[in-house]
Design a protein around this nucleic acid. Sequence first.
DNA 1: ACCTGAACACCGTTCAAGT
DNA 2: ACCTGAACACCGTTCAAGT
Lengths: 219, 219
Amino acid sequence: MARPRKPLLSRERIVTTALALIDAEGLPALSTRRLAAELGVSGPSLYNHFTTKDEILDAVADTVMAKVDVSTFQAGGSWRAGLLDWARSYRAALAAHPHIVPFLAQGPGRRPAALKMADAAFGGMVEAGWPPAQATRICAMVRYFVAGSALGSFARGFVDDPGAYDPADYPHLGQAHLLPEHQRQVDEGAFEDGLRALVDGLALQHPARLPQPDRIQQR
Amino acid sequence: MARPRKPLLSRERIVTTALALIDAEGLPALSTRRLAAELGVSGPSLYNHFTTKDEILDAVADTVMAKVDVSTFQAGGSWRAGLLDWARSYRAALAAHPHIVPFLAQGPGRRPAALKMADAAFGGMVEAGWPPAQATRICAMVRYFVAGSALGSFARGFVDDPGAYDPADYPHLGQAHLLPEHQRQVDEGAFEDGLRALVDGLALQHPARLPQPDRIQQR
DNA sequence: ACCTGAACACCGTTCAAGT
DNA sequence: ACCTGAACACCGTTCAAGT
């Protein structure tokens, strides 16, 4: 074929197809050759639009992060409301694409959507009176909790076979084989309970609650 | 060479070498051929000891999980002490081998060390008065938090280059380029603050604190 | 500028052949 | 039982060649 008059590929089409492939078959299924086949071109064609496979993954990651909603922080409500809305939206965005979470969790790097989220969350917490060092740690712990919960289902991590849990070895796991059946309830319940606990517990750490020592803020 | 009079390989030697390779160069560096070379044998030799590469990873994963200490639960102290000690030990075990966390986080499956940990943690919480359904969710949220924190550093996720954070785009990230320098403090501080918040917040959810409705326990 | 096929150094896994 | 080399169908990436 050689060069067509109208490009067959675009960065956008590559990214969209890559994400669909990852969602459908997992990260290992995304090979450049398989992706190219899915797009109707030969393998090396992709290198006209991205210099490396990792760069494709970066673009996919930023697409996912762009779905996270941080508007509550910008609306200037309480830090509790901002944090709750952010964390829930963050988890929803990641849980929709669990196979790319290990890659995402490597941090924002230079990806604009990831940086925009970090900026809004950190800024929102600081404006709500959190010292920068604490605001940083809170952003980190939310990332931990969200990424961990989106990385893989807790409930589906247990096998669906009563015979796998010998009472002699695991006296308390007699019901564990039922977990996969209730995957959604367990995982969403755990996330909600945990998020609530986290926010309640953080409230106790807010400087407004403490006797005010003068300026030991640091970063 | 063909068959030697004394086996060159053992499951243990394979697992130890695999973990060292993963730690040193990351999960993608673990190929069966590379691992075999490291062990001084040819690629297919491994298949005399494991039926698949994934089975090797399973064994590596269980080795890591075996390091988690759940003895505080068995000592029968408070659920707070049990949870704190467990979570810290769990994180230490995983953070020592961050590259295998995405694999680990797929759940215990049939791996004995992972099941033993789940059994002790769940059992400990139930014996401390938590209804089974809540105990399950607490184990899940601890896994989320620990796996997320061990998956990758929050601080090192930011690039070490002031030029990466245009104030016009990211007004609050002016200091973000300093984060990688303080990786340990930030990540450990975030984990400790988060764990404390989680435990404090959970205390508010313990049934002993609530007016006792009669038997709405479920699982 | 944007596609192609050929080529390179890799993969995981199977299998017949050796002792 | 436990190792080997050869073979199969895959990888990511480079590059010269086409339009």
